[in-house]
Design a protein around this nucleic acid. Structure first.
Length: 738
DNA sequence: TCAAAGTTATCCCGAAGAGA
DNA sequence: TCTCTTCGGGATAACTTTGA
């Protein structure tokens, strides 16, 4: 909490400083500092005890140094309030609870079988890579295949195209098997398979068929193993029918409170949606979903037992414990999942329960809500997944917002989220945060705790019993936080380290850090690559420009056999400089970062340093400056003012309408505008033809500014009018059309 | 032992497509 | 034609694996 406050303080300080700084400065990673919060080494755990006092003092000093260096880098001051209780009056602090679970028994056989399937996929993909496309659809010659390609409007994909995707899925299943248990892995495999079967491409794309066949195998593998202990909706009914306890089950609804019928030895089973265990001579199987109360009991030899609401409450957890415990023994679910279920059950009577479970992997976030949905004992929970996008199971932004909205208004009471929810999710009703997978960094540890916003909240950390790295992480996170707080209050005297390499100084490290004298803004190697990208994005442009730097790496074999790298930086053509060669460095990353200094030098050389040189002597803004961008309302660079005209004729197509296409490309102070005629583009509509043609030329010509594809002179004039070149275009077009 | 490469996740932004 | 949404590529971060 303290360091989170510090972070906020620093961020607001940065924000207050930002307007005074150059555009380069604004991109600096403001969050970077938190990632580098010092932590005690895992060595501590390996030593089997706490660090000695001398080591702790050393750690405090390290912490002080890091904070001081951070302040230097950000030109900021770290501070906090002395009395923590004072802070807690205003900012609710959840109570931290550590829950231990046992290590899962490894299901070697299943893991191995899935790995074998993975190998088989790789082999099949390799052998299929040369196979003809579209063959499986009966296309035997090139014409037939082309016809199919036209019909479906997509290029054909082969088995090898699907292999990489499938291997990822198999690894996710294997992960679920190890971390969550067999039943969850089965659920994962099943959802992958269902998604493929619902994919309309399955009708004609080989890669989908390929994946489907292997996934079916995995589903069968996991499903077969489950049949001994698992009860699906269908076979639970069968089990009930097979058992003479059907009557007993119906009776049970009536006997939640009162005396059990005495004619049998009753063993009532918790059926958490998927489990059935036969341990008694006479048994009753009851699917918990049939009861409105979801009571779960294990009562042994209870001929005369009296069931009361009290015993229901007492035995509720015991019941789940026993039954899921049996499932744990079978590997159906892992002890970790068992513990999670038990944790959730403790909140079943909590008013306005709202919880977030943080998991590391997307697959866990997706499968756990499915598990909860099938547990009658967790029917008080309405769960949903929250994951980011740009992964194989991505969630769209609108879906994410929808889920968060539901969580906020209570339609969803439990979110199972990846780290996407660690920051920025502000839901005041959230009263429980569970770290199913421990955070990876102290930042994540603090941030996820901050999601529990309600007074009296719980922050539950699930730790594997006997896992040294888990224990060490917890200790380190707490120590780091406390050390930070103390350091922010007391401030260690580091004057004796002044001038040494441990305390960084913007002045003492020339060559790695650049400082803008007028503002004091500092740029380091760490932020170099990001800054170059940002700089490019700020260059004046029109909507057709691709403003992206390109880093071309070169490998150098040095005398002595060592390998070093240099980087050639290619900037967009509307930058004041286009190509820069960086020095030879020991690593690719360093070579990439080192280009930064050349950018700085070129930047200075072009007179573009700081805000004072945003304009030339005539008062016009210079290229690459914010003012320059504003100066051109259409976003067209100054360098486009001069033009060299040229024409060329491309592909004399056989039939179709004649289309005029132009594209413009600029080099520093000149513009090349090419025009050519194209006939034969008869793809549905002319609009479509234009788009296709534009796409083609964009891919063919680098640094292409603008493409216009038109069927008449008038259209072309309009196109050029859009980018403010109507006068130039008119002159040119007159000569062309003449 | 260390650096590179790979894997897992994230965010950001431009391109492309859909719909009003 | 414009606006909004979706998709995909490129970036970062932390960690693990691999190889010299």
């Amino acid at each position: 909490m303290i360091s989170y406050r510090i972070a906020n303080r620093i961020e607001s300080r940065i924000e207050s400083l930002a307007p005074k700084r150059s555009s380069f400065w604004k991109v600096g990673k403001q969050r970077e500092w938190l990632q580098s919060i010092p932590m005690l080494d895992v060595v501590e755990a390996a030593l089997g005890g706490s660090l000695r006092e001398r080591d702790l003092r050393q750690f405090d000093v390290d912490c002080a140094i890091k904070i001081r260096n951070l302040e230097t880098k950000l030109d900021s001051v770290v501070c906090t309030i002395k009395d923590r209780k004072e802070l807690e009056k205003h900012v609710p602090m959840p109570s931290e609870i550590v829950v231990e679970y046992d290590k899962a028994a490894s299901l070697w056989s299943l893991h191995e079988q899935i790995k074998q399937i993975e190998l088989a996929v790789e082999e099949a993909a390799q052998s299929s890579s040369r196979r003809s496309k579209w063959q499986f659809m009966g296309a035997r010659d090139a014409g037939a295949k082309e016809e199919l390609r036209q019909v479906y409007g997509v290029s054909e994909r082969t088995e090898s195209d699907g292999a990489a995707n499938l291997i990822q899925k198999l690894r996710a299943i294997n992960y679920a098997l190890g971390e969550l248990g067999q039943w969850c892995a089965y659920k994962v495999a099943q959802s992958f398979l269902t998604a493929l079967q619902n994919d309309e491409r399955a009708n004609y794309q080989l890669d989908v068929k390929f994946q489907e066949s292997y996934l079916s195998e995995v589903v069968t593998l996991l499903q077969c193993q489950l049949s001994e202990g698992a009860v699906s909706e269908n076979n639970s009914k069968n089990a009930t029918a097979d058992n003479d306890a059907t009557q007993g089950a119906s009776d049970l609804d009536e006997i939640e409170e009162g005396e059990l019928p005495g004619s049998h030895v009753w063993i009532l089973y918790c059926v958490c949606g998927f489990l059935k265990y036969e341990t008694g001579a006479t048994s009753t199987f009851r699917n918990g979903a049939s009861s409105s109360k979801e009571v779960f009991l294990v009562i042994h030899d209870c001929r005369a037992a009296t069931v009361t609401k009290y015993s229901v409450a007492i035995y509720g957890l015991l019941h789940v414990d026993v039954i899921i415990g049996a499932a744990v023994a079978d590997g159906k679910v892992t002890p970790k999942v068992q513990s999670l279920i038990k944790i959730l059950l403790k909140y079943q009577h909590t008013e306005d329960f709202r919880a977030i479970i943080f998991v590391e992997r997307v697959v866990a976030a997706l499968v756990l809500p499915k598990v909860f949905a099938e547990l009658p004992s967790l029917s008080f929970v309405k769960s949903a997944s929250l994951i980011g996008h740009n992964n194989s199971q991505e969630m769209r932004t609108s879906q994410m917002q929808d889920t968060i909205g539901k969580f906020r208004d209570g339609r969803v009471t439990l979110l199972v989220a990846t780290s996407v929810a660690e920051e920025g999710l502000d839901i005041r009703q959230c009263n429980v945060v569970i770290r199913f997978d421990l955070a990876k960094t102290v930042l994540a540890y603090i941030q996820s705790r901050g999601r529990a916003r309600k007074p009296g909240s719980d922050y539950i950390l699930m730790v594997e019993r006997g896992n040294l790295s888990h224990e060490a992480f917890l200790r380190n996170a707490r120590n780091s936080e406390e050390t930070l707080r103390k350091e922010a209050v007391e401030r260690t005297d580091l004057s004796h380290l002044k001038g040494t390499s441990r305390l960084i100084s913007v002045d003492t490290t020339p060559g790695t850090v650049y400082q803008v004298e007028s503002t004091g803004a500092v740029v380091s190697l760490n932020s170099a690559v990001g800054l170059i990208h940002f700089y490019c994005s700020q260059l004046p442009s029109d909507r057709y420009s691709i403003l992206r730097p390109e880093f071309i790496m070169e490998r150098h074999e040095m005398p002595g056999g060592s390998i070093e790298y240099s980087c050639r930086l290619q900037l967009p053509c509307n930058a004041p400089f286009e190509k820069l060669e960086g020095p030879v460095c020991s690593s690719m990353r360093l070579a990439q970062q080192a280009c930064w200094h050349h950018v700085i030098n070129a930047y200075k050389g072009s007179g573009e340093e700081g805000e004072k040189v945003d304009q030339n002597d005539e008062g016009d803004p210079l290229p690459g400056t914010a003012r320059h961008r504003e100066f051109y309302p259409e976003g067209v660079a100054n360098i486009l003012q001069f033009a060299i005209w040229s024409t060329l004729v491309l592909h004399p197509w056989e039939t179709g309408v004649r289309v005029w296409t132009f594209f413009a490309t600029g080099f520093r102070s000149s513009l090349l505008l090419f025009g050519f005629t194209t006939t034969g583009f008869c793809i549905e509509t002319l609009d479509r033809a234009h788009r296709e043609l534009k796409k083609y030329h964009k891919s063919q010509f680098r640094n292409c500014y603008y493409i216009a594809t038109c069927e008449s002179k008038r259209h072309l004039e309009l196109e050029f009018g859009v980018i403010g070149h109507s006068a130039i275009a008119e002159t040119y077009l007159d000569s062309l059309w003449a």
